[in-house]
Design a protein around this nucleic acid. Sequence first.
DNA 1: GTGAAAGCGCTAACAC
DNA 2: GTGTTAGCGCTTTCAC
Lengths: 342, 342
Amino acid sequence: MESEPPAAKPPTILDVAKRAGVSKSTVSNVVRGIRSITPKTQLKVTRAIEELGYRPNILARQMVHQRTTIFGVVVGDLANPFYAEMAKQIERFAAARSYRVMFCNTQGEEAVEIAGLEGLLQQRVAGIVFLAYAGGSTRSRALLEGRMPAVFVTCSAEWGDVVCADDERGARHATEHLIGLGHERIAYCADPIVEDATDRARQAGYRQTMERAGLTPTVFHWERAEDRLLREAPVEQILTGPRRPTAFVSSNDLGAIDLLDCADRLAIPVPGKLSVVGFDDVVMAGLARINLTTIAQPKEMLARLAVDTLASRIEGHLNGDPIRQTVSCRLIIRGSTARPPR
Amino acid sequence: MESEPPAAKPPTILDVAKRAGVSKSTVSNVVRGIRSITPKTQLKVTRAIEELGYRPNILARQMVHQRTTIFGVVVGDLANPFYAEMAKQIERFAAARSYRVMFCNTQGEEAVEIAGLEGLLQQRVAGIVFLAYAGGSTRSRALLEGRMPAVFVTCSAEWGDVVCADDERGARHATEHLIGLGHERIAYCADPIVEDATDRARQAGYRQTMERAGLTPTVFHWERAEDRLLREAPVEQILTGPRRPTAFVSSNDLGAIDLLDCADRLAIPVPGKLSVVGFDDVVMAGLARINLTTIAQPKEMLARLAVDTLASRIEGHLNGDPIRQTVSCRLIIRGSTARPPR
DNA sequence: GTGAAAGCGCTAACAC
DNA sequence: GTGTTAGCGCTTTCAC
């Protein structure tokens, strides 16, 4: 590669054609690796490309194809480690298939999601990965359905492919683990950041297991407040109330960690007086200081399946009705669970 | 908005023009909000746009402008909360200026960075935000310099604008805090994920303060190993060695948290026997379980300045030599620091 | 096997 | 104020 005069405008296919003494379609053929080209021509062209430092202008290519090779990725909150870890894996697998990704952070708000999707649509992304989906949103559906492949990862909608963990079974494992330890007053605690459908599945697994064991399910929801004190007040009441649970199944790790935080502040020993099981297995959960028993989602596998599925739709290898792929998750026992007090 | 026949090919500016009975440039003028348009024409066009559900094809616009409205964002590791939080803020401020972002995760590896940059270049991004920069990389520089504005955030290079915290002063605060508590054997612990230039600045602040106080600076580096045991072995030796430090200044929060983890495993009480100060103030640092004293970087402000600067370069409001903007950081005292033992 | 030519949908300069 | 026109750089028939 030669050192081009800086800031000169980049060479086009025409420049290469001239230099190689061929037509631009021939250059195009070489670039796109279409055979049926004389080795000699091939050589001339390749050399010209090198000498000029030519790079195909993707914009022009996209303009012709009317489509980019970009995935739109809708994510609830990048600052949430679970999403961040998933986002990273998605980017990785996409890059491996030479797709790029464009993120769009929604904060779980439908209006932001819509605006973000509009933006992604305008950019003519090739498909969309939902890491979070403001489910009620009929507008999102109207915007995308039939126009563009969408895959829902750890969330779901009937109108697109779904890749998710076996949430119900995961929650069952969590609950069984606690019951096995001797707990009876086990509550489920729902974090609003977790997608509705996903939360429902986890809740269902919890309820079933409780009922089968002859126990009464109880479900709490975190307040959506920004302010920590406001958010935690109701939880603290529960933690100090009369018939307080001896154990919690949380709908995600972050909620579980918040629970630990509350317990710490109230000087309730974990796991001595209170057991907590999370869901996701974010990196943080493995820190010695956190040491959270949790249900691990296979993040790499989820990301890989999602990217494969979306790419297949885009490239036309996969057609027809939406498919649903489920992968199993597993219980990781750490230090936040033990037998109930006394 | 009417319900278009699904999967029909999207209307073009020409369709709108026909329907409104005007020329396509008029439509273009309306779309781009250029005034000098009769209210009447304006109305006709707007209505046609609505009826057709027309959306300008950004690809075509980009093709003409020879440039996108996309920022490339180079990030070391999205799974690292500091980068994730920064990435989120960058996305937010970019969106507010109607730029989109395309991330590229490098894992701190130069080869990946180069490949990522090539990809971003091909996509004709309008500019690049480096949240991480494999500094030695002369190839990156060759690839970009003079071609495309670049801004370095919490990292730096002479050939682009820099936005960063006052790392030197931050480290000074951290060190002074420890000295103020009575510590004398204070070590600096460097995490390789922190950019070289940034690390140097923090180290300098630490060294200065130590020397001024007549104390001997000592610097440790984390091993780059993937395996935790391998990584932590040397640190554990230091923590249990004869003339072991009573306090650490870590080059970032994650390193500090790893330090806490080691201490916990070795049953060294923090802050009883060991004090630790981090750098960044990631959300995690504020958890009751972590409770890390740290130097807070103003993440929002860094992101805002970075986006503003890059946008100004792109839009031509800012020209000439690279500029450097520094914002101050502040000490947040939590529970990981106290007076030295005895 | 290679070349000529017709777009892809839009912007911008210039006529009217 | 509005219309006409010439590209932007590439892919893709279709002749040769």
